[in-house]
Design a binder for these strands. Structure first.
Lengths: 193, 193
DNA sequence: CGGATCGTTGATCAACTTCAACGGTCGTGG
DNA sequence: CCACGACCGTTGAAGTTGATCAACGATCCG
């Protein structure tokens, strides 16, 4: 199993010594997902952090009316997990599944804690990682509060042009918080100009 | 200057040795704010992390139409900063000001980096802190996408009962993403039942 | 072929905003 | 001490934005 992409990603933020790399490799699990396969299902306990090698996963929430609300897409070199469930140990209210056939590296919660204790570099790496994710999430809250659906869609296109290409529209609609029907109308409006 | 509340807050997550405490104390700046005073103004560079001792600050964004959108309230033992600007060094598009007379402890960006390098405990502390903030922000995105304004208001009351007491309604409206007029109508509806 | 998935369209309806106006409270300066 | 302005909440009418529902066509794949 080749965890080189993961190591490379970490070393963009902080160098790892040999011991850290070996410990990391020892705790990394490889998993292949087919399209539509769950990595985490509502009611499960989220016990792994997941690093996506290739393919595309989504983290989403099924609300009272049964509709899916996408919180996050994760493609190559992205992380995904229900961090809330991971920390508290409570059952997850979120789902993770594969929108495309995907390859994933997983680290169990307990193993990650051991890595934190043994190698301070991992605290640093995940601190920076989470800070970046937090900023992105903050901007998204901002947009949800202050922008129209059309503005949100345009900003999605700008920010994730690669995702806009490869994802079905219905997933994008869910991410920006509108119905697929309305997104279709937004796109028509944009065409007409 | 007494930074004990800050140390106590950190030690809920990870113990600090004497050296770490002293270095922290040496880098901590005390600042008093009067009501309405800016701690960060749009266009400034955010160069400090701010720990609120008492009072209440808000982090907000002024959009194209000139309306204020609140991203975060920070009261006692809370942190506030524009982390995006802090990291990238770019000018901030956000503002921080005091809703009440407040006391704040500040740590400059450069000093914080030194603390990270010298004492791994700070990486750990801010990792956990940010993970928690991230989870909260994620839940908020979820709510914005999947709930009505009334549900968002009720959930705000549940989650921050102390804030609901002490904040003017117009700030709460801004936080949950509705106009103050509409929040007033929501409240009337809730009364009538 | 037949079903699953995806996008589109139009009609109707609900949620929320905008605007304008009004009343109450509180602090400050004259 | 009063008067004034700043700030805050409320109300109602009219307008927008976006959801819902039902229907249809296209594509893809087993």
């Amino acid at each position: 199993m080749n965890i080189q992409p993961l190591i490379a990603h970490i070393e963009k933020i902080i160098p790892l010594d040999e011991a850290a790399k070996q410990d990391l490799a020892a705790k990394t699990i490889f998993k292949k997902l087919r399209r539509r396969q769950y990595l985490l299902q509502e009611g499960d306990h989220c016990n792994h952090y997941n690093f996506v090698l290739n393919g595309c996963l989504r983290l989403y929430f099924v609300d009272g009316k049964g509709s899916e609300n996408v919180l996050q897409f994760a493609t190559g070199n992205g992380w995904v997990a229900d961090i809330g469930s991971l920390h508290t140990g409570q059952a997850s209210r979120l789902c993770i599944d594969a929108l495309e056939p995907s390859d994933v590296l997983r680290i169990a919660k307990q193993d990650l804690i051991e890595l934190y204790v043994k190698h301070a570099a991992f605290d640093r790496y995940f601190r920076v990682l989470t800070e970046n994710a937090f900023v992105a999430m903050q901007q998204r809250v901002l947009q949800n509060i202050s922008s129209t659906a059309e503005e949100r869609y345009l900003s999605f296109l700008e920010k994730y042009p690669h995702l806009a290409q490869r994802l079905p529209q219905v997933q994008i609609a869910s991410f920006i918080g509108v119905t697929p029907e309305f997104l279709s109308k937004i796109r028509r409006n944009l065409m007409e100009q």
